[in-house]
Design a protein around this nucleic acid. Structure first.
Length: 458
RNA sequence: GUGGUUGUAGCUCAGCUGGUUAGAGCGCUGGAUUGUGGUUCCAGAGGUCGCCGGUUCGAACCCGGUCUUCCACCCCA
């Protein structure tokens, strides 16, 4: 016998009940994407390597799954490259394709390729799996789904406002109340770096700042120092570390701190606009919170940065993120097209809903009616009934063999079928069928002419 | 990519300092109940102890490697 089969690290099979739950999330997300005027697209699961490589930084390149060329790829490698044992240059020679790493870069590629067919501003949504050669952890997989909504071709901050509303609408509909939408702005981060004199070290500065809630003030200061940021600069940044209070007072503090930075002031202004607009429009269940330490995400964010945290008490990384990227399509040669988008982490939302027991109970019902099989003749009558039920849109089935009643009832019970129909010899003689309500245990006899009465009662 | 952790029945897990025949609960199958599930009682089936190698008279247990799980870094949904 063969060895036990297995699946690759960080991948999963999905069983019927899991699919039902995932579909539930998908459908709600899609519904709101559509209501907000987004249109769906799909892109290939793999792209040319040059489309992806270098777009996510060195760390990203490492995490991209490369696809080996077809044919006798190794014989085509020149001796110098082969004997150099340098993975990077060798990879370029033996792999020309790679699995999608996210949905944003392929979307940028799509926009550039189809720019003449697209009516801007273009609002698209996309729900597809992406792959990362990461080391798995809870809520981190090597194959997972992203649900993205992006708008390209509009500089308007109304888009940011709408995207926050979209987050709120989806999480409210999912009954996942109390999520925190954290909001920041790249210009503010750049402004701070400028004001403290660390503008050349922006990325290191922000990456360190991002860890504030995790490693604390001292940890952040230590990391900044290690990354070459001067003590003087760190001291100047001190007010950031204990920035607190409501959004309005944080805005005020930032305004003062960044008064000397044009860029920073612009960021504060943008942030203020979004906060005020949302304040006027009200959110249903989400909290919107300024978080200047929020610096996650890819290097290409230029304006707003979003991140969604699970409700308090749930131990889970972010369940969504996004931001504004002024020059995303620039890397593919199309200048001056601004984009802003958000992403939902389906797999993590699933885990959170599971933990909080928020999936509707109705999801595990996959069959409305099961007919007990009493034998050849009886099962034909049952199938006739089932055929009529199916035509009325009722999911119905006949147990396929004359197994013991106990076994058939147990099957119905395990599959959570709410109604079991019995058509035995008696029923056939009287042209009736017996319906058993599995929850109450009660039984009713219907005439075969009264099928619609039964359907109405479902 | 670095450091650690986990793997025993379909599932959740016991299993002593290495010692005959590896256990429990749930689930499954059969029976009590030949037209009634979810409750109860009785019986039964089911395991290359992740995989490969080593130490030993003897390994689920010790050692090495490898795969997997989860965790901390890195980074991120």
């Amino acid at each position: 016998m063969a060895q036990k089969p297995s699946i690759p690290k960080g991948t999963r099979d999905f069983s019927p009940t899991e699919i039902a739950k995932r579909d539930y999330i998908f459908e709600i997300v899609k519904k709101h994407f559509k209501i907000f005027g987004f249109q769906p697209i799909e892109t290939p699961s793999f792209e040319n390597s040059e489309t992806l490589m270098g777009k996510y930084g060195d760390e990203g390149d490492r995490l991209i799954f490369k696809i080996l060329n077809s044919g006798d790829y190794i014989s085509k490698v020149d001796d110098a490259t082969y004997s150099s044992k340098d993975s990077k240059s060798l990879t370029a020679k033996i792999s020309e394709k790679a699995l999608r790493y996210d949905l944003t870069v392929p979307f940028a590629r799509y926009v550039v390729m189809h720019q003449n067919e697209i009516d801007f501003p273009f609002k698209r949504y996309q729900i597809q799996p992406v792959w990362r050669a990461d080391r798995p952890q809870k809520g981190r997989f090597r194959e997972f789904y992203q649900c993205d909504a992006d708008v390209v071709g509009s500089n308007s901050l109304l888009q940011e406002v709408e995207l926050i509303q979209l987050y709120d609408a989806v999480f409210t509909d999912l009954k996942l109340e109390g999520v925190t939408i954290k909001l920041n702005n790249r210009k503010i981060l750049a402004g701070i770096a400028e004001v403290i004199g660390a503008q050349d070290n922006l990325v290191n500065f922000t990456v360190a700042l991002d860890k504030l809630d995790k490693i604390g003030v001292e940890g952040v200061q230590k990391e900044m120092l290690a990354k070459g940021i001067s003590e003087e600069a760190i001291a100047k940044a001190a007010p950031l570390f204990d920035l607190s209070g409501d959004n309005a007072s944080q805005l005020e503090a930032l305004e003062q701190l960044l008064a000397d930075s044009t860029q920073g002031s612009k960021g504060v202004e943008e942030l203020g606009f979004i906060i005020n607009a949302i304040g006027d429009l009200d959110l249903e269940s989400a909290n919107l919170k300024i978080d200047v330490t929020l610096a996650r995400g890819l290097n290409y964010y230029t304006g707003a940065i979003f991140e969604v945290g699970a409700p308090e008490g749930v131990k889970m990384g972010s369940i969504g993120g996004g931001g504004r990227y002024d020059d995303l399509t620039g890397i593919f040669g199309l200048k001056d097209v601004s984009g802003v988008g958000i992403s939902f982490g389906l797999d993590r939302i699933y885990l959170v809903l599971e933990e909080l027991d928020l999936f509707p109970e109705t999801l595990d019902k996959s069959l409305d009616v099961l007919c007990i099989n009493f034998g050849e003749r009886e099962s034909m009558s049952a199938l006739a009934l089932v055929t009529q039920l199916r035509k009325q849109g009722v999911t119905a089935d006949v147990y396929p063999s004359k197994a013991k009643m106990q076994k058939q009832m147990k099957y119905a019970n395990n599959r959570k079928v709410p109604f079991v129909v019995l058509i035995g010899e008696n029923e056939m003689n009287t042209k009736t069928f017996v319906v058993k309500d599995m929850a109450s245990g009660e039984q009713h006899t219907y005439s075969l002419d009264e099928i619609n009465d039964f359907i109405k009662g479902l």
